[in-house]
Design a binder for these strands. Structure first.
Length: 582
RNA sequence: CGGGGCGUAGCGCAGUCUGGCUUAGCGCGCCUGCCUUGGGAGCAGGAGGUCGCCAGUUCAAAUCUGGCCGCCCCGACCA
């Protein structure tokens, strides 16, 4: 492609609308332009990269034995009602009405639709297993789209779904996808972590996130510096009865005392006011479950992990109670809750359960709310001042905790971009939508499902977040929009034009993707744009042609910055050997 | 949805506090011509703006007031 025939609007300055690095560079290099918050136009260069990524995804999915399909983006609401997810997803789903007034959804994901399809068409164990995938636009009415294409309202997803006759089959399908995902991200040149994760709204029991570390990421994960264990903090168990840093060695139990704390309701405010550390305080969080209210006790500096709590009490969702309920349960104002006296109000072991995080067990003489406005207790102690129903691991892991896998205290909390997520679903959807098969004995059984998603647009943003310098993007060969860019220093010069043209045609004849910057503009502009675009090989045709020994052109490698001069007669072969085998 | 910020030419911004001194500016980009060609050249000429929208205050509004819309950031939320 000749630059003068293309449409590559580059910008000298950072756009005001962009904050994250990949977002700025994608706009500056002419890959994308915003249409509205959370929707983007892909320009020719961006589309080329997108297609490169899609091709890699498709090759690897096909290679894994999965079959490509294409499902509608427009969904009837009924299957979503059947699985309960119309309600669970809530406002995330775009809802539109057709001319007859019937509700339609824009698909945010396709478990329901694919399960319905398979349920109608597959009925025998002989037809299983099967893995179907598609590469298609998804719609999600995000609360806050951000970071350009990293979180947008409309995005391209590769979503795959496996159907098996038993758990063993699911395990095999899951491994296949796991491996295919690794190959896809490897080929795209991304660094990524594979993280044990919580299935969340998808349901099921077991999932892994593929996350690219980046400051523009919204996902937190923990990583062990010793054994490489990675997990979502919401998922990581804390295999320890307490945290040694909070031990109060041998201190005798001091007498319980109340103290006025006017308007000091947060841990931070009380900590300052009473001059005690948050680690010496216990916070009491009143939570609502389908079966009743729970008071959860946590050390002041810890955070409640709702997912763990939900699993503990076998509830689908656990939420914080509202202010009125809290006042009813504790008899005091919100922000001044505490465990002391709860027994009289239905605590152990009446209808209000008290659950203490393990770390609270080792605490002595701590501070809690007094269930009275503007009042706290000092020197509170378990068993002496109140009883608990049970202790458990219900908090979010911190960097100070031991690794769940190796036990060493070398955890780091990192941020990353979630590139892909794979789930073992089980029978949640097949049961709800009646996707069953007959086994060899003629017994009717629900199919065992897995689902697997990749954010295709996020691969592009992540690749840039992974690889750039102060001058622009540095593409890896496999997803670069072009392999080679030819800069003609002065296209009006006859010799330069002829040599450039011949090289351009020769490269094309050899199926090498080449962009020829044939613009009549000053050399600096072309060098800057070439760096900004990040094309791996930059070939400059200019004064090197006057070399005494014979005409030469210059090659610069974008990633290393290394330069070399090559004779005009050898340059085609030279470039071919660099570009092949990518 | 709560908090904060922004909206002036294709892009980046000044002007708004203190209404009139502007025919609404600057840099980049764009168009024409000349010139130049190894790291965002130079000279000359030129095009391009309902100052987000609506209403109000005023002799007078980019500037003050009210409402609305859009965009960005933080939070909550989210596969």
């Amino acid at each position: 492609m000749k630059w003068t025939n293309s449409f590559i609007p580059t910008l000298k300055e950072d756009p005001a609308e962009a904050e994250s690095l990949s977002h700025k560079l994608m706009i500056r290099a002419g890959l994308i332009r915003k249409l509205s918050a959370g929707t983007y136009n892909y320009l020719p260069l961006g589309t080329r990269v997108l297609n490169k990524v899609i091709n890699i995804v498709r090759e690897e999915m096909d290679g894994s034995g999965s079959l490509e399909v294409l499902l509608p983006a427009l969904h009837p609401p009924e299957p979503w009602e059947q699985t309960g997810r119309l309600k669970d997803f809530g406002d995330i789903i775009f809802k539109i009405k057709d001319r007859s007034g019937k509700l339609n959804l824009l698909g945010p994901t396709h478990e329901e639709i694919i399960t319905l399809l398979v349920s109608n068409e597959i009925s025998s164990y002989r037809q299983l297993p099967v893995i179907l995938y598609q590469i298609q636009t998804k719609f999600r009415d995000e609360i806050r789209p951000r970071f350009g294409v990293i979180r947008s309202k409309e995005f391209i997803m590769m979503d795959a779904y496996s159907f098996d006759i038993d758990e063993e089959g699911l395990e095999k399908s899951y491994r296949k996808m796991y491996k295919a995902y690794c190959r896809i991200f490897d080929r795209c040149g991304l660094s990524y972590h594979i993280i044990e994760a919580d299935p969340g709204l998808m349901g099921g029991k077991g999932s892994h996130e593929f996350t690219c570390p980046s400051p523009a990421g919204e996902d937190l994960f923990i990583k062990c510096g010793n054994c490489n264990y990675s997990a979502n903090p919401n998922f990581a168990p804390i295999n320890e009865f307490g945290d040694k840093s909070s031990e109060t060695p041998n201190s005798s139990l001091k007498p319980l005392k109340d103290i006025l704390t006017p308007d000091k309701s947060s841990i931070e405010a009380v900590s300052k006011f009473l001059n005690v550390q948050p680690t010496e305080m216990v916070k009491t969080m009143v939570c609502r479950t389908p079966t009743g209210q729970i008071a959860v006790l946590l050390r002041g500096d810890h955070e409640l992990n709702f997912a763990k709590l939900a699993r503990l009490v076998s509830a689908p969702v656990v939420e914080l109670s509202d202010e009125k309920t809290i006042e009813k349960v504790t008899g005091g104002a919100m922000g001044f809750s505490g465990p002391v006296g709860l027994s009289a109000r239905g605590g152990p072991t009446g209808n209000i359960k008290i659950i203490a995080d393990y770390s609270v067990l080792e605490m002595k003489n701590f501070v809690t709310g007094a269930n009275k406005k503007d009042m706290h207790f000092l020197n509170v102690n378990i068993n002496r001042d109140f009883k608990i129903d049970r202790s458990a691991d219900v908090r979010i892991i911190t960097e100070q905790d031991p690794c769940p896998s190796c036990g060493k205290r070398m955890l780091k909390i990192m941020t990353g971009i979630e590139l892909g997520h794979i789930f073992k679903l089980g029978t949640k959807y097949s049961e709800a939508l009646n996707a069953c098969f007959l086994d060899e004995k003629g017994k009717r059984l629900p199919m065992i499902m897995g689902c697997y998603g990749i954010g295709v647009n996020r691969i592009i943003a992540s690749a840039i977040e992974n690889s750039y310098d102060e001058n622009g993007i540095i593409w890896t060969n496999s997803i670069a929009p072009y392999q080679v860019i030819i800069i003609s220093i002065n296209p009006a010069d006859k010799r330069i034009r002829e040599v450039s043209e011949k090289l351009y045609q020769d490269l094309r004849a050899n199926s090498i993707e080449v962009l020829w910057d044939d613009r009549d503009t000053s050399p600096g502009v072309k060098f800057k744009d070439a760096d900004l675009l990040g094309i791996p090989l930059i070939v400059t045709v200019g004064k090197g042609l006057k070399d005494k020994v014979g005409g030469k052109v210059d090659i610069k490698y974008r990633s290393s910055g290394k330069k070399e001069s090559i004779g005009v007669d050898k340059v085609l072969e030279h470039i071919s050997s660099r570009v092949q085998g990518v």
